[in-house]
Design a protein around this nucleic acid. Structure first.
Lengths: 202, 202
DNA sequence: GTCTATAGCCTGATAGAC
DNA sequence: GTCTATCAGGCTATAGAC
């Protein structure tokens, strides 16, 4: 019977290298388009050696997604019912936009999965995500009822924030084809700020 | 030497069936994730027979994308410099939202391609799309200078419209996981209408 | 024009030496 | 723990009968 030992330094390093490589490959080709060989090469390992750390291709994908889900939902988690309504929402939007700028591969990983029908994370959507969104939209509706922000459909308000902020990471190529040399986020930040100030003003 | 004859009825029907099947498969698995076998089966043909109509998998993909690009850009083409500014923009947004509702597979086909770095349509982006967008943003800037609509970054205004409307097709699974039984477009239409009225009001 | 058969390659995953 | 060698199966594409 094998004991579950604490991972050695080398194991930690290799696992991290695999997940880093997998993020690159899965985010730019999707699950079916990604190959184990490509991930192994990018991680600096042989294919069998990679499969010593993760038994299957799906196991790598699952580990990657579940490890990132928390990070991905953190900005919404921070939305505070006791803060100033307008500033809380604008700060949330700013955090989402920063994630698009700083973690575009993570955004595209989720985008790939969602566009293709989310076969591997549908459960997380209807449980974890749904619960979090319901908790936070309740706060939004409270602020609307108190007249602190404009009356809007709370779910569509959330969708609009996701759509607008993630667009810059997910469709980066298109954005850059239009903008040319201009930095996308330099213009995006004041634009979305203005947009939501006008939209949310009661 | 073979003559280029007009396609027979059966050839027309098969080509159409292949492109219809390819739309289903490419839009839900991406280029690399799609297989010729799957497309052939869905089109009711054998694999070699499919490859008689299109020489390669890439040829199917190219034919599909270039055939749809016109449809995809039509709503923006219709934006009329001589119309009422606010109504023209709102009508454009409505057309884009209708396309998300009525042609979600087409939206996801482009989304898949863009998320994965647009290796097969990058040229169209920097030529056709860029030219069209520049032509139409010139109209928007004209309206801004005349004080007919609010002063905004014209490119980011366009991005916001794309992001908001296409979100409902591309991330359909996520939207439905949150909304439950509620029809996405019933709430989306008044929401985006309100949003852009507030945003564009001078 | 459409089929069966198959070439030739790449895939995910495994066996076994070290 | 890491390697070489290799499996079975799926992949794109082609050859050749009908």
């Amino acid at each position: 019977m094998s004991k579950d030992r604490a991972p050695t330094r080398i194991q930690k390093k290799n696992r991290a290298a695999i997940l880093e490589a997998a993020l690159n490959v899965f985010s730019s080709h999707g699950f079916r388009g990604a190959t184990v060989d490509q991930i192994a090469t990018e991680a600096g390992l042989s294919k069998p050696n990679l499969l010593y750390y993760f038994p299957t291709k799906e196991a790598i994908h699952t580990a990657l997604l579940s490890g990132l889900l928390e990070t991905w939902l953190a900005p919404l988690h921070e939305l505070d019912a006791n803060g100033d309504p307008m500033e809380e929402i604008l700060a949330y939007i700013r955090r989402k936009l920063e994630m698009s700028r700083d973690l575009p591969r993570e955004s595209r990983l989720f985008a790939n999965e969602l566009v293709q029908g989310a076969p591997r994370i549908q459960d997380s959507l209807s449980s974890d995500l749904k619960i979090l969104v319901d908790e936070k939209t309740a706060i939004l509706v409270g602020w609307m009822d108190q007249g602190k922000i404009a009356q809007l459909h709370p779910y569509h308000l959330i969708f609009s924030i996701w759509a607008l902020t993630q667009h810059y990471a997910d469709f980066d190529v298109q954005v850059r084809a239009i903008l040319g040399d201009e930095d996308p986020f330099e213009g995006a930040e004041p634009f979305v700020d203005t947009l939501y100030r006008k939209l949310l003003m009661p």
